[in-house]
Write a protein that binds this DNA or RNA. Structure first.
Lengths: 121, 121
DNA sequence: TTGACACATACCCATATGGGCATATGATTG
DNA sequence: CAATCATATGCCCATATGGGTATGTGTCAA
């Protein structure tokens, strides 16, 4: 099988930088497609396609308004992403990096005192 | 162009559920490949491939240990993911959902009074 | 040395991607 | 009505995916 569809879940949908841009833009409020087209500097069909993906994973809602279609952010599906990545936050704090270095050193020392040092052939 | 390579960044690398599983497993500490193979129940070459992707985006480090290769988590590259998604957290809190409903209602009322902007309540 | 083990890589394949371009659909205006 | 604006969809294509299976490379054991 190929890669999972972009519409599989928020993880896949959000892997596309343009789709992230769209969500960022919509964070400021409802917007018609043309606004996004101008904002992203992409061809209109492209934007529509990205919006479709976002719709399919429930990250945006649409509303008809005359001849425009207003898209609105619906961040809910991002929650699993947040919840998953949140658990790694501690790992990149400075304290943790330090711990990493310490462990590294311990390992080195351990190897050094490892009785003699054989290994040949 | 096709979809961006999985090795483009953490966003793409992490879109694969198996790779997330691997990172979860490595959060517990250094592990040899076979451990992961057993843990994920995947074919060994598959795991090696996923590990390669994770290596290329810097999410894991390797260390040789006899005939094994010990993989270690390096969460740093996840930071952009966290930072991005974090900004949406507020949106799915209950208060925000409520606000959403209120706005929705306001809109409805607005549409109802269309040409005669009347105050009501 | 030979063999077993741990892991990585090479190929083969079906699939869906994102972009480009043309066109269909639907609402608004003249 | 026709013309125009705002979006969506259809089709074409190159690409890299993730899985499978076979094999290469390096290490340890007998």
């Amino acid at each position: 099988m190929a890669r999972a569809a972009t519409t599989t879940d928020a993880f896949n949908a959000v892997a596309e930088p343009r789709r992230r841009q769209i969500l960022d833009a919509l964070a400021g409020g409802e917007r018609p497609v043309n606004d996004l087209v101008a904002l992203l500097g992409l061809a209109q069909p492209l934007v529509s396609k990205h919006l479709r993906v976002l719709r399919e994973v429930g990250l945006v809602n649409v509303r008809d308004d005359g001849r425009q279609r207003l898209y609105r952010l619906n961040a809910g599906p991002l929650r699993p992403v947040y919840d998953w990545v949140k658990n790694f936050e501690a790992q990149w704090t400075e304290r943790f990096e330090q711990l990493d270095v310490v462990l590294e050193e311990l390992k080195e020392r351990e190897l050094g005192s490892e009785d003699g040092h054989g290994g040949d052939q």
